[in-house]
Design a protein around this nucleic acid. Structure first.
Lengths: 240, 240
DNA sequence: CGAGGTCTTGAAGACGATCAACAAACGTGG
DNA sequence: CCACGTTTGTTGATCGTCTTCAAGACCTCG
């Protein structure tokens, strides 16, 4: 069930069969969420952490004045709120962007496993650190790049992350974000997202129609985004 | 020596005397850095992690075209690059913003302690998660707030974090950032930083002169920044 | 006292926000 | 299966924020 998660964990150092089995064993039955549903509520204090099995979710912060910001996107195999394992309260909500399947790991069980298997604990820790690396990267994207580079960057990142879990088909993948949602990710208005997409289309770099993206010129997209996937930490680590 | 760090760690759950002693014991002798010095080089693979004892540092990413972004500021007591413990390569450099004192913890020793003391491991993990929480918050600040709110937010955050380690004196603290540096934190040009500071001065909210900031109207500053310190996680956690 | 860094100011222009209106796609119920 | 309402996407016009460039003033430190 959680193969995709185990694959990500193995990037830090393959967990033993025993560790994999132990982690799999504490997972609760699959639950489903419809597009738009709130999976985790801001300010709540969950007693379990959620693994996304399929679909896409966003971490959403509501601001006064009705504006909102999506601080992260989660794809299949991500441990969506592993940080809640150690943090008292959620500082954001998590919403399903399309139909999603999840399973959860009770915090008490996680704690037991972390005490028992220090290397598994570090592999989980590692996941949260990769998350932080992605956050830092988006700080530079939002701080220093214009709208078209931001949009291109989003597509590059999602292409790479989705490809990693086998969800890219010939340069084509599902992007369940409306243009308004994309604006909340990129920190620009929905109208401007539209104009930027048109620009990308005009340059024959991508097509982006009805929640499906097709990359037509990867190199050009990478150039616009100044994309360097290092920060995604998709290469194998070696415990020194 | 690392009292400030231990205090931060204790927020997750007071480490035992044994854990504190063990952590203190692996720390290397104090090293000093001058303002402007590069403490950790981007793309390097450090074999030890750095604790900032005094001074302030910034995590800096260089971009093509000569622009740069500071993705985080570190204050006394911070474990500056604890994430490097688990990450193969630094995706950014760390520079001293004023005269700094540091000590370091060799990764091999850290690993040994984490195997030995699972609760200490979780407290360290917790530190990296608070870092990520701060990153997420800055994503919303950069994505959704204008320049004056960003500047006010920076001052609010630094006031709160510095106050936490006893470095605020009557609303006054040292901010060793030039206006150009501040621009690299806030994602705006140096010129605009200047204009925003003048606006804050004109509104009688702060004085900010020669690396010293004096908060004159905290409530007004908080209002401009829409500052809510929850994300800094400065309240005591309780392990459930 | 001179030199380099930092701060300040002005003017011009780019980028993106906002508002408003309409078109296209979607989904829901009759 | 169509009708209708709602959501999403598209376009144009106007306006404000912030960038860029350039120049001068002010510190600070050797």
């Amino acid at each position: 069930m959680i193969e995709r998660l185990l694959k990500k964990l193995s990037r830090y150092g393959p967990p033993s069969g025993e560790e994999c089995a132990a982690l799999s064993a504490i997972m609760t039955p699959v639950r489903r969420f419809a597009a738009g549903q709130e999976v985790i509520r801001q300010y709540s204090a969950p007693k379990e952490s959620t693994v996304l099995l399929s679909g896409m979710m966003g971490r959403l912060v509501m601001l006064q004045g009705g504006t909102q910001q999506i601080t992260a996107l989660q794809v299949a195999g991500d441990f969506v709120d592993l940080h809640a394992f150690l943090l008292a309260r959620m500082d954001h909500s998590v919403v399903a962007l399309n139909a999603c399947e999840v399973t959860t790991a009770p915090h008490a069980e996680l704690r037991r496993l972390c005490d028992l298997y220090p290397r598994l604990a570090r592999a989980l820790w590692y996941l949260t650190i990769v998350d932080a690396s992605i956050h830092r990267h988006w700080i530079t994207v939002l701080g220093r790049r214009d709208a078209i580079a931001r949009a291109a960057h989003l597509l590059c990142e999602l292409h790479t992350r989705l490809d990693d879990v086998g969800l890219v088909d010939n340069g084509q993948f599902e992007l369940p974000l409306t243009q308004a949602d994309s604006g909340d990710v990129l920190g620009v208005s929905a109208v401007h997202v539209n104009r930027v997409i048109q620009e990308l289309r005009a340059r024959d770099v991508v097509t982006w129609d009805r929640r499906r993206v097709q990359i037509k010129d990867w190199d050009a997209l990478v150039a616009i985004a100044e994309f360097d996937p290092t920060y995604l930490q998709l290469i194998q680590q070696t415990e020194t």
